[in-house]
């Protein structure tokens, strides 16, 4: 057991061993959440604050349940980023939470670096539940865990990540996790949302979805976040679907055992055809279940982390 980190802020700074530790612990927790009494007392008496400064349902519920399954007391704190901007600063808010003896702060925030910013200033454990377009580490941990559960390995798999890459923290975290674990990562998407600089992260880049599908062991689709973008990036959803939507017809190009993954929520009929989302190759709901186990694992490991404060 070598986990030493106080916080989980990103995948980029994790070692292969640390990723492996989370996966190993998650395996144990998968057993726990499958039993009739789905709860263990590992975090009894600890306080976990779910601080979501950006709307999110699934990640918040997943963390909420993970903490409760570990017997922690959970406080939900939802606030829009704009209310922070108008009123109390983020740092003042989290210092108040720490003054109330919160041992864990799970932060979702629209600003890249927000989790690191508070982690450096608090002694509480901080888990990044998504910071702007930077990272969403638990998502990548649960995604790689799901691939491992299904394929037994990640090394030498070819993983195609398609959609809006530029604004995606899920893409960034998965790029780091998958390349560390030895996969070949291919990014696919419209040129405006997939700048060439991504190549420097050690991945391949393609704008030809149909040419990539037959080669992929995993097809990971990202939501096209139209509401987040200014119209200049892409003419229309229709144009996106025409080029990058995974339709049943295109699916025939895929390997028969290709895994279809999605971080949710799915835009059915946009990036992914509805029948494929529910089809045999889809592991999308497994991702959700594994998310709970992985988040329990992260909370459990951080609770034992003994890293000194950096500041």
């Amino acid at each position: 057991m070598s986990w030493k980190k106080k916080d989980l802020l990103d995948i980029r700074s994790l070692s292969v061993e640390e990723i492996g530790e989370v996966h190993a612990a998650a395996r144990t927790f998968r057993d726990v959440i499958a039993r009739e009494i789905k709860k263990v007392p590992a975090l009894r008496g600890k306080t976990v604050v779910n601080l979501f400064a950006e709307p999110s349902t699934r990640t918040r519920i997943s963390f909420d349940l993970a903490a409760k399954r570990l017997s922690a007391d959970v406080v939900d704190f939802e606030a829009s980023s704009s209310s922070f901007r108008k009123g109390e600063t983020l740092i003042d808010t989290v210092r108040n939470l720490e003054a109330l003896n919160a041992e864990f702060i799970i932060l979702r925030h629209a600003a890249a670096g927000a989790a690191q910013f508070i982690a450096e200033r608090l002694s509480a454990h901080v888990i990044n539940a998504g910071d702007g377009a930077h990272e969403h580490p638990t998502q990548a941990l649960l995604d790689t865990f799901t691939i491992l559960q299904n394929r037994g390995r990640i090394a030498e798999l070819r993983v195609l990540i398609s959609g809006d890459i530029l604004f995606s923290r899920v893409a960034r975290s998965n790029i780091h996790a998958l390349t560390k674990l030895g996969a070949t990562v291919v990014l696919c998407g419209p040129a405006t949302l997939l700048p060439d600089t991504f190549r420097e992260l050690g991945v391949e880049i393609s704008h030809d979805f149909e040419a990539e599908l037959p080669k992929a062991d995993v097809v990971y689709l990202l939501r096209i976040q139209h509401e987040r973008q200014r119209a200049v990036y892409f003419p229309s959803i229709g144009e996106f679907v025409a080029l990058f939507g995974l339709t049943s017809e295109r699916f025939r190009l895929c390997k028969p055992d290709a895994l279809i993954m999605h971080p949710g929520p799915i835009n059915r009929g946009v990036e992914l055809a509805s029948e494929l989302a529910d089809g045999r190759n889809s592991v999308i709901l497994e991702q959700v279940t594994n998310g709970l186990a992985v988040r329990m694992a992260v909370l459990y490991l951080l609770n034992g982390g003994q890293a000194p404060l950096e500041h």
């Binding site: 890249a112 670096g113 702007g132 377009a133 930077h134 700048p195 600089t197 991504f198 420097e200 200014r230």
Partner: peptide, 18 residues
């Protein structure tokens, strides 16, 4: 430079900043 906060390049890609 709408929303831009740092040089566009490798580091803005890694850090997820505009």
């Amino acid at each position: 430079t709408a929303d831009g906060v740092m040089n566009e390049g490798y580091w803005s890609t890694v850090l997820g900043l505009h």
